Amino acid sequence: MNQSGTPDNKRKQAVALKYQAGAMEAPKVVAKGKGFVAENMLKTAKEHDIPIQEDPSLVEVLGKLDLDQQIPSELYQVVAEVLAFVYRLDKGGAKR
């Protein structure tokens, strides 16, 4: 996930989530960064063909969570939509 095309007064942000299908746990924040770190996260994701979903508002909220913290229940719906997007990409139903 990333926030791109940000105004000059805002640095680029990125947050990576990990979700184990079938696990009884909510997705967790496994990486996050701003500026140069965010750019490197996005570059690495693209190099490894990892889907990127752009949602600046979601990145802003997720960026406030601690590393290894599960997402709060208030974000389940929106994160489920992101996971559905990734699932469609993996099944060839959408273009990256």
Rank of each mutant, 00 (worst) to 15 (best):
P7Q: 14
D8I: 15
D8S: 15
K10Y: 13
V15E: 02
A16R: 06
A16K: 07
L17T: 01
L17P: 04
K18R: 12
G22I: 02
A23W: 10
A23M: 04
A23L: 06
A26S: 11
P27E: 05
P27T: 03
K28A: 06
V29S: 02
V30T: 13
A31R: 14
K34H: 08
G35A: 01
F36H: 06
V37Q: 02
A38I: 04
E39W: 09
E39M: 10
E39V: 07
N40H: 05
M41I: 15
L42T: 06
L42W: 00
A45E: 06
K46S: 11
K46N: 10
E47N: 04
I50N: 04
I52K: 07
D55I: 10
S57T: 14
V59K: 02
G63I: 05
L65F: 13
L65A: 02
D68W: 12
D68K: 08
Q70C: 00
I71S: 01
P72F: 04
S73K: 09
Y76R: 05
V82I: 09
F85V: 10
V86I: 14
V86R: 01
Y87L: 13
Y87N: 10
Y87F: 13
R88L: 15
R88T: 05
L89T: 09
D90I: 04
G92E: 08
G92I: 07
A94H: 08
K95L: 13
K95E: 15
R96G: 15
